[in-house]
């Protein structure tokens, strides 16, 4: 691309542009899809982006084994099928899966605990990439560590594939409560807060000033109904990821659309009530206590 008139030429991959795409997704729903047909249904339902993956978390959970990046062919078929942004998942710490996804031209990479971690100590160094990353977090310190590594968007982890919103609630409250506590501290107390959060001081001070994360905060992991989505928005989410909740339900077209509408009008119970009518079967939910600790995804990553 040649230089623009009278100024600096185009610069790709800046933090501003990477975070900027997430800013454009605010107030929207990002849906897990496993094939082009589901991707088109998601776009038609009003999704702002799709997450391309071979198995939704509920199936990964049921089938077990090592979960990896999806087949490039499958990801490309979804990129071809829709005009909205396409995200895809890389394993925690697997920089080569991320390089492959960037090469394929996905719009966002999710360094995801839903896949089996490839590195138990280190996450991907995300700064050098041109493609932006979204990462999961269970609390404020974890969110800030991911941002320090270069994440341009954060999602609360929840517990994917359960259809149970309780963990999403826990993580959203941990992150937003952590932010609110920082805003109340004296500046001299922020250094100790950074130590306690195990997060860089500069980011801690920035959050204390902004009263929010410096990047967009979505929620994920267990959202199954329009009311779940609206609840997460009322708890301070900027948007919603829905994984298994749509295509594991009885009527994905109707439910997808209903979750989108409830996210848009999250403060309006009349809308949430209207779209919640006659949705058919929700996905079967799982009590968190019945999942053995080693099979819970939220504990992956640090």
């Amino acid at each position: 691309m040649s230089a623009a008139s009278n100024g600096h030429g185009p610069i790709t991959g800046s933090d501003r542009v990477k975070r900027g795409l997430a800013d454009m997704l605010k107030g929207g729903v990002i849906m897990d899809v496993i094939d082009p047909e589901q991707a088109r249904i998601a776009e038609e339902a009003g999704a702002v982006a799709v997450m391309a993956l071979e198995r939704v978390p509920a199936d990964i959970r049921r089938e077990g084994g090592v979960a990896r990046m999806s087949d490039p062919e499958m990801i490309e078929s979804i990129v071809e099928a829709v005009s909205i942004p396409v995200m895809a998942k890389a394993r925690i710490g697997h920089m080569v899966e991320a390089q492959v996804l960037e090469h394929l031209g996905v719009d966002y990479i999710d360094e995801s605990e839903v896949l089996t971690p490839a590195d138990e100590a280190n996450h991907i160094d995300k700064q050098p990439f041109t493609v932006p990353f979204v990462c999961g977090a269970t609390n404020l310190g974890e969110a800030l560590r991911r941002i320090s590594e270069g994440a341009a968007m954060i999602r609360s982890k929840g517990e994917a594939g359960t259809g149970n919103v309780v963990e999403a609630t826990r993580h959203m409250r941990a992150i937003t409560g952590g932010v609110r506590r920082l805003t109340q501290l004296d500046p001299s107390e922020l250094h100790a807060a950074a130590k306690d959060l195990a997060a860089p001081y500069d980011l801690v001070a920035e959050v204390a000033e902004l009263g929010r994360l410096p990047v967009v905060l979505f929620t994920a992991g267990g959202i199954a109904t329009p009311a779940d989505a609206a609840m997460m928005m009322q708890l301070g989410a900027d948007g919603v990821f829905v994984g298994s909740g749509i295509f594991k339900s009885g009527d994905p077209v109707k439910r997808g659309r209903a979750i989108v509408e409830a996210t848009t009008h999250f403060a309006d119970p009349e809308v949430v009530a209207r779209v919640s009518r006659g949705l058919g079967e929700a996905m079967v939910g799982i009590e968190i206590d019945t999942i053995p600790a080693e099979q819970r995804y939220a504990g992956r990553g640090w």
Binding site: M1, A4, S5, N6, V17, K18, L21, P85, Y108
Partner: peptide, 28 residues
């Protein structure tokens, strides 16, 4: 312009605006 990796920051001259080129972002 292509996928997100082609999104860019740029300065652009806008007719009728005083104060020099605008600093703007093109995102998908």
């Amino acid at each position: 312009y292509g996928p997100q990796t082609a999104s860019f920051d740029v300065r652009v001259e806008v007719a009728g605006l005083d104060g020099g080129p605008m600093d703007v972002a093109f995102i998908r």
